[in-house]
Amino acid sequence: MGFCVLCFRACRRDFCDVCEAGFLEAQLQGSRRFGKLHSTDVPILSSYAYRGVCRESILACKSQGFRRLGPALVRRSLTCESLQERLGQCDVIMPAPSSLWSRWRGSLDLAMMLAQGLADAAGLLVCPPPRSLSFRWYKQALRDHSQRRGVFRSHQKIYDASYFEPHTPTPLRSARLKVLIVDDVVTTGHTLSELAAFFKHVDFEFYTLASAVRPGKDHAC
């Protein structure tokens, strides 16, 4: 007998029955693809709505340092059939970059934990995002998401597919290099789309653990 990694009730799995029911309530039916980034036609796949137990788990992992929650969330995400399909098509995984504020606070990099867990499960390698102080600074400084569109690109050089070479197999699974960009929560999608815009001759898939986009809310996806 163990304990729930979130509420510490006695249970035999990662999450107790109460928390498990919360995840099922927040689960997007059929792993719904909820929109497209403004700079690409590729839709974002998200497993859960950012609410209830799902939101509580992500915040506890990122802000409170509940390290056991990270692997548990990875295992929970792997139950998504659409995600399994994407993992089978991609060559390399890249996490979305965290902000300087998050790193200064010492918060856990959940996007990196998620990317590493998915990569281990799929037998892929993780390629870290470009190290750019300006990217991470503007990610935090521009609180209004509408201000972020295009601003990262002016502070970042354009990379090409060779950036991923140390992390990709030979031969590739498809005609062109395909990268799965992973993040914990998506709101407007600007971080993902700006990151994808840095690279030439690369195809992208997008996966986020949870979506904070609400029906009827104006967003970039």
Rank of each mutant, 00 (worst) to 15 (best):
A26L: 09
L180R: 05
V5T: 06
G88T: 13
Q29G: 14
L192E: 05
S174L: 11
C4A: 09
S39F: 10
Q27C: 08
L37Y: 04
C11S: 06
Q89W: 07
A121N: 13
Y159E: 08
S63A: 09
Q116A: 15
T79L: 12
V53N: 00
T168R: 13
E20S: 15
T168P: 15
L180G: 05
I44G: 01
F204S: 02
T170S: 07
R12I: 15
V179L: 09
V185T: 03
P171G: 11
A21S: 04
L100Q: 07
T187V: 01
F152E: 02
Q84L: 14
D184K: 00
C4Q: 08
R105F: 09
S98C: 11
Y50H: 00
C221N: 12
I93E: 01
P43F: 10
F164W: 08
A111F: 08
P166E: 12
L133H: 10
V126K: 07
T170F: 10
G70D: 08
D14Y: 14
A141G: 04
A49W: 05
C16T: 01
L45A: 03
T188V: 15
D41G: 06
L133E: 10
V186H: 03
S154Q: 05
H190F: 15
R103H: 10
Y50I: 00
V53P: 01
V5E: 01
S154A: 08
H219M: 14
G2D: 14
T191N: 04
V5C: 03
F135P: 08
S193C: 07
Y48R: 02
Q147K: 09
C127K: 10
S132M: 13
L6S: 01
F23N: 04
A210M: 08
L6C: 05
S47V: 11
E20F: 12
L142T: 09
K139F: 14
P215H: 07
E56T: 04
K139Y: 11
L59Y: 00
E194P: 11
W101R: 15
P128D: 08
K157L: 15
R149Q: 04
D183K: 05
F66E: 00
Y138K: 13
P97E: 14
F8P: 11
L209G: 02
A115G: 07
P215N: 08
C16D: 01
V5A: 04
V213Q: 03
L142Q: 06
Q64Y: 04
F152H: 03
I93F: 01
P128L: 05
C19V: 12
G22R: 00
W101L: 15
A10C: 13
S162D: 05
